[in-house]
Simulated scan of single mutants.
Amino acid sequence: MAEINKSPAFWRSFPIFEEFSKELVAEVATLAQWRKWPSGTVIFQRGDDGNYMILVTEGRIKLSLITSQGKELSLRHLEPGTLLGEMAVLDGEPRSADATASILTEGYVIGKSEFMNLITRNPDAAEAVMRYLCKRLRETTDQLETIALYDLDSRVARFFLATLRHIHGDELPDEASLHIALSQTEIAGILGASRPKVNRSILSLEEQGAITRKGNVIDCNIRRLTHLAEPDED
């Protein structure tokens, strides 16, 4: 069993806790239990009780749905520093998607009753959680807008920019590099397209000077990527 990380900076690196006081962060740390999931482990399935949330520290977890035709729809790929399962913990509803460890994954689990007790006793924490949920809703709206309103070149460009903003914040440098752990098939699932079409779009971005690929590393020209992400803003 791994030792629980007690660093306030560590816990605040997860967006849901970033506004928590030092005392609240310390209490969160006492609620956490370390877990490990081998590659391929189904962590939970749609319809399961939402009695805990997970803070990912190593590895990657895929959130997906199985359609009525038996096709898997990839929703998100959660990497270190991300949180999942919090919606079911907070609203009391069943899990809304399947969660599977794509590779060997580690993280902390926080139980529903313990977390709800914490925020019920601390109004400041409850307000911080509400602001976090509003931000998540805006991100979901942006993702749906990307799929519905933009051509695939723009969607791929927006995906790269969104990933960069998770690393650098809203103020991006002129040039930045990305290490993409996802396969093109996984990216295609996120963007609602086929793998061959995503591959063609990545080639198109490369031909237009927006990116340069060096193995799994992608060097990004932010100005050109932004131009492709918002083609109607000229």
Results as ranks from 00 to 15, higher is better:
E3K: 14
N5C: 11
N5K: 07
S7F: 04
S7R: 13
S7A: 05
P8Q: 04
W11M: 05
R12Q: 07
R12A: 05
F14Q: 01
P15N: 11
F17S: 05
E18R: 08
S21I: 02
A26G: 14
L31Y: 09
A32Y: 09
A32I: 10
Q33S: 12
K36N: 10
V42I: 10
R46H: 08
G47H: 11
Y52C: 08
Y52T: 08
E58A: 08
G59M: 15
I61Y: 01
L63R: 00
S64N: 10
I66C: 08
Q69N: 14
K71D: 15
E72Q: 09
E72S: 06
H77T: 06
E79L: 06
E79H: 07
L83V: 13
G85I: 03
M87C: 11
A88C: 10
L90E: 07
E93W: 10
E93H: 11
D98R: 15
G107H: 03
Y108Q: 03
V109K: 05
V109M: 09
F115T: 00
M116W: 00
N117A: 14
L118A: 02
L118M: 06
L118V: 06
L118I: 05
I119R: 01
A125Q: 07
A126D: 10
E127C: 03
E127L: 15
M130T: 07
L137D: 08
E139C: 02
D153E: 13
R155T: 02
F159T: 00
L161Y: 02
T163Q: 04
L164W: 04
L164Y: 05
R165K: 12
P173T: 07
D174S: 11
E175A: 14
L178R: 02
I180G: 01
G189I: 02
S194E: 12
R195P: 11
P196V: 05
V198C: 04
N199Y: 03
S201H: 02
L203I: 07
E206P: 05
E206K: 07
Q208R: 13
G209D: 15
A210F: 09
G215R: 02
G215T: 09
N216F: 14
D219G: 06
D219V: 12
D219T: 11
T226D: 00
L228W: 02
L228K: 11
A229M: 05
P231G: 03
E233S: 15
